[in-house]
Structure formats: C-alpha cells, structure tokens
Design a protein around this nucleic acid. Structure first.
Length: 543
RNA sequence: GGCCCCGUGGUCAAGCGGUUAAGACAUCGCCCUUUCACGGCGGAGACAUGGGUUCGAUUCCCGUCGGGGUCACCA
C-alpha cells in the first residue's frame, strides 16, 4: 500500500490534473495582458474596500487588453446569503462594473474558465488534492477538535508556536494502511499539506505594491480540504487562479502573511506563481485612532450607502482612484472630459499605508463631477435617485420640461457651472423654492414696511421681457428712488450716507421670491418661475 | 507573544542623499460678486523618536515608540 492507493481510496473518481489543464488552456491574449479578478464571498455585501479592489482590477485588465472576471468564493457555508451573488452583481453594476467574465447573476456564469462559483468546482479541487496525496505532498488528518485544542495548549505551555508543523503534525506520518482503514471505517478527516518548508529558511515574496517582503518559509501542515470536502481559501486560490490563468492577484493586505503558504502550494504543483498586489485597507478615524473601516460599525463601509446617499458612482470611483494613485488628481485636472478608465494606473505608485476615508473630500470630488453634468444628466440622475429614495422629490420632478429649466439655472448657458450640489439627496432642498412659494420671510437689513415698499415699487417696474441689464438697472432705480445707494461700491465708501444699498434691495426681492437670502442668479430664477408666478409671489408679500 | 507591514501638516499625498519639503481637501484672511455656490490671491500648518553611515539625511542602516495585519476545518 502506498500513497497512490491512499489517494484512490480518498478520491476514487477524481480525474487527473492533466484533464483540467487540457480543458482550461492558456488564454489567447496578447503579451502583457493582465487577467484579474474580484473574488468575494456571497454575503450580498460589497465593501468599499472591495470596490477599491475592483477599480484596480479593472484598470489593470483594461490597460493591457486583458480580462477582469468575477469569481464567487463560497466554500464556507456560513458566509452564504440567499441571493448573495445576485446582490453583489447588482451592487457592482451600479458602479458601472460589469466584469468581462464570471458570474453575471445568482447562478449564471459567462466565460470558458468556469464554473466561477467555488462550490461547483468540488471535483476539480479533489483532482488537485489527489495529485498531491499521490506524491506524498498531502495527507489525511484525523485530528478531532479536542486533539487540536490539546496540542495547542501544550504548545502554549511550552512557549512554542502553535499549529500543525513538524513533530506536532500528529497524523503526518500515520502509516498508509492505517489511514486507509480509518477512512474505510468512516472516520471524518481533512486533507493537510505535508509541508516541506522550514522555519529557519527564508523566502522572498514579491509584491507589486510593496516590493520584496521576506518571511520564514511556511512549515505548517495547513488544511487544504475541509471535512465537508470543500477546499479552504488557500487551496482554492491556488487551483482556481492557476486554472483561470489569473496573472495578477489583487487582494487585501490581510493576505500577506499567508503568501508563503500559497507559494509553497504553487511550487508543489509546479505552477507559475501569479503576481501579487496586496493592497492596503481603507481606514476610518475613530476616537482619534485609525482602524479598518468596519462593516458592522460604519454604514459607509457598504457600497450601497453611497447609492442611498445619492453620491454619483463616478464620484465614488474617482475619489477611490485618488487614493490608489494620487497622480490621478492632476490628470483629471488636465483631462476634465476624459473617462476615468483612460487614466493609466500604476500599482507601483500606490500608497502602502492605509488611507483614512475622507467623506469631505469625496463630496468635493462629487461636487466637481456633478458640475460637469448638463441639466438633462442632472435631471436623469436625480429623478432616478428620487424614484427610489424620495417620493416627494420624484413627484416634483415629474414635469421634466420645467425641471430641466430649473437644473439649467447657471448651468446650461454658463461656462462656469454652479457647484452647489454634491449628492442627489441635496437636490430637494436645493430647488424646493422653485416649486413652492415661501411662507416665511427674513429680509435681513430692510424690514417691515420698508421691505413692502421695496416690493411695491419693484412690482411697478417689473417686466418679464427685460434683458438682464435692463432688469438689474430697474432694481437700481428702485433702490435709488427709495433712498438706497445705487451702487454697492459707493455705499461702502460712505456707508453713513444711505440706509442700505442695491444689494439689500435685491435681498428683499430675493427673499420675497424664494424665502432665502442665498440663491443662484435671481434673473434666471425669475425667468424660470415665469411672469405670473413672480408677480403672485411678490404681491402676496405686500398684503 | 512569534512573524510581517506601515509611520511627511487635521485628511489624502509628492519626494526616492543637497528642495524656500509640491499639490488636493479642510481651515483662516483678502479680492471678485446684487446674495450664495464658484473663481483668483495669500496665511497658518508636517518629515514619530534616538543613534549611526555620510561633507550632508525626510530620504540609507540599527534600536525605541506608535499604528495595523496574521497566527481557524473564515475568507
């Protein structure tokens, strides 16, 4: 009885790995084309850090004419959520991420390297595990949780490293005959790596973000296949990324410490080790300290949060790109109209220490993104958002023709568009006075009867058809007639000569019209409101 | 605790042996403007720390401190 017999007892029906090598031939891509992937668990939740990785993945693939695919890592039943894949696909789609290949819905995959759901790749993993067992590079381990606990305790008491390695790897040298017998008796077991690594030897790992990192070799007999027959992450990573021909593995920095294991596995199979880009996490400032942004504590950890808040997807992605390569900011300034995907991202220019997520900066980016939209785009985005999250706003926006005029104020005919909107959830408050006449008035400097007098006088001269210059001259006339300074400048030179100036007069009209002291250009507002509405609003103040 | 990563203004960050140590956001002031949002100009604000190496260290080396990750039949 030898390893081959053992392998056959464990996986009698497994195919040879050559079978799969034949089936998943190298991709027919140009030199230098990168194959990348996003590989979440089907929890239905996309973390902001996941989006961040997607941006990197997609940039890499796009820039090189490669492929970006979506693989689902569902080898842990506890992490599964009903419809989890679907939700991830949808969440990504909202950010304009449609992978070239991989899962496209809960159960559908697209591409020649599937299945793209790990739970459906069981026999593939078994074939590869069998290969290792045959060669004595892996073995069945029958340790019970109690046994493992006991080993750990002994190690701790002796001040040693914990884990299954060297002499502590209890079933590593179990005679093949005995192992076979135990298996035939139906004993539960896992498959462990028979590590040839040595802790006193060093291994150099190349990381595209950090450069070279040195570790002791892996000497742990890590679990490869769990008792339920499904692989553990480390094993699935090696098998899948090899078979799917991933060229660069973009993953979180929490994986750095397990790369020696992964490299050992790739070497055991004789496979080429992919490039690793282990990227820093996104942090959150909490109580003066920085910590990883957390799914449980921080709503902004979920990518859906931004959608709900009405922050444009483009803005979120651009903000994230700023963190990935800070040179993006300068590029964007020089190329305001290009698509973000035209920017050449470089892994080597990426920061290595995690960035604190800055909502204020995001909103600034967003403000600039929205400023580039025309009225129709703003309308479409706002309306779409409103239909999902703000019924009242949605109702307001039903009349598209009018809404377009409202959003066109200081935008459509202006080469310096307004920048007073950073998310769709601000729209309602931003334009409400264009839909409802104000009921409260705070005129600031000129009040009471004086204010009424201003309105009365203005009403006498107001003409909807005036051009802007004439329109403003008339306000100046009113100011002068009522004893206010015609020009702000002359008022400022001798403030004691007048009770106020044309700006104060304008404020009265503005407040009467909108209920606010701060608004966009008043001439445009009045043009959009229309003659009748303007007169109505103004005269109602005089009553 | 072992192993590993990281440490430039409040935040994101350029820098890669010699710089007045960029820029963006935030902040403050001024200007522009009938108000605001913009825009323009300017101010304040940083190389964690101690040793080396060097003619010279933010930059290279070591220690210290601080932060983070990882040590699962979770990913």
């Amino acid at each position: 009885m030898d390893y081959k017999d053992l392998a056959n007892v464990i996986y009698p029906d497994a195919k040879s790995i050559e079978y799969y090598e034949e089936m998943y031939k190298p991709r027919n891509l140009a030199q230098g084309a990168e194959v990348t992937r996003f590989a979440p668990s089907p929890t239905g939740f996309v973390h902001i850090g996941g989006l961040y990785q997607c941006i990197i993945n997609r940039a890499l693939a796009k820039q090189t004419g490669g492929v970006f695919y979506l693989r689902i890592e569902d080898t842990d039943q506890k992490r599964k959520l009903e419809n989890g894949v679907e939700q991830i696909v949808q969440a990504l789609a909202k950010f304009d991420f449609v992978p070239d290949e991989g899962m496209i819905s809960e159960n559908e995959g697209k591409g020649d390297y599937g299945p793209y759901k790990q739970s459906q790749r069981r026999e593939i993993y078994h074939a590869f595990a069998k290969y290792l067992i045959e060669r004595g590079l892996a073995y069945p381990c029958f340790a019970t949780p109690e046994e493992i606990e006991e080993i750990r305790k002994k190690q701790e008491a002796a001040g040693l490293r914990t884990g299954f390695y060297g002499v502590w790897a209890k079933y590593r040298n179990l005679p093949v005959d005995e192992a076979i017998e135990r298996i035939k008796n139906g004993e539960s077991f896992v498959i462990r790596l028979r590590s040839n690594g040595r802790e006193d030897r060093r291994i150099k790992v190349k990381d595209a973000v950090r450069g070279h990192i040195e570790f002791p070799e892996n000497d742990q007999d890590a679990v490869l296949i769990k008792a339920d027959g499904l692989p553990v992450y480390h094993f699935a990573h090696v098998v899948d990324d090899h078979l799917m021909h991933t060229t660069t593995v973009v993953r979180g920095e929490e994986w750095i410490s397990s790369t020696p294991l992964h490299i050992e596995l790739f070497n055991d199979f004789g496979f080429k080790v992919p490039k690793y880009a282990q990227v820093p996490s996104i942090l959150k400032e909490d109580d003066g300290k920085k910590r990883k942004i957390s799914k449980r504590k921080d709503p902004e950890a979920a990518v859906d949060y931004y959608h709900k808040e009405g922050i444009p997807s483009d803005a979120v992605c651009e903000y994230l790109m700023n963190i990935i390569n800070s040179s993006f900011e300068g590029w964007r300034k020089g190329n305001p109209d290009k698509k973000m995907t035209e920017f050449k991202m470089e892994l080597s220019k990426m920061g290595v220490s995690g960035a604190v997520f800055d909502m204020v900066k995001l909103l600034d980016v967003s403000k600039n993104v929205i400023a580039k939209y025309n009225a129709k785009q703003v309308y479409d985005f706002a309306y779409t958002w409103a239909k999902e999250y703000d019924e009242e706003l949605a109702k307001m926006l039903e009349n598209e023709e009018y809404a377009l005029k409202v959003f066109g104020i200081e935008r459509e005919n202006s080469k310096k568009p307004r920048k007073d909107l950073s998310k769709w959830s601000e729209v309602k408050n931003n334009i409400i006075y264009m839909y409802e006449a104000p009921t409260e008035f705070d005129f600031d400097k000129i009040t009471g009867e004086d204010a009424k007098k201003v309105i009365e006088e203005y009403l006498k001269v107001y003409n909807f058809d005036d051009d802007k210059q004439t329109w403003f001259d008339k306000i100046k006339d009113v100011a002068e007639k009522l004893g206010y300074a015609r020009e702000v400048k002359e008022y400022k030179q001798n403030p004691d000569n007048w009770p106020g100036h044309v700006g104060d007069v304008s404020t009265v009209i503005r407040v009467a019209l909108t209920g606010r002291r701060n608004t966009p250009d008043m001439y445009e507002i009045m043009q959009v409101l229309g003659k009748e509405e303007v007169v109505n609003r103004l005269s109602s103040v005089c009553k």
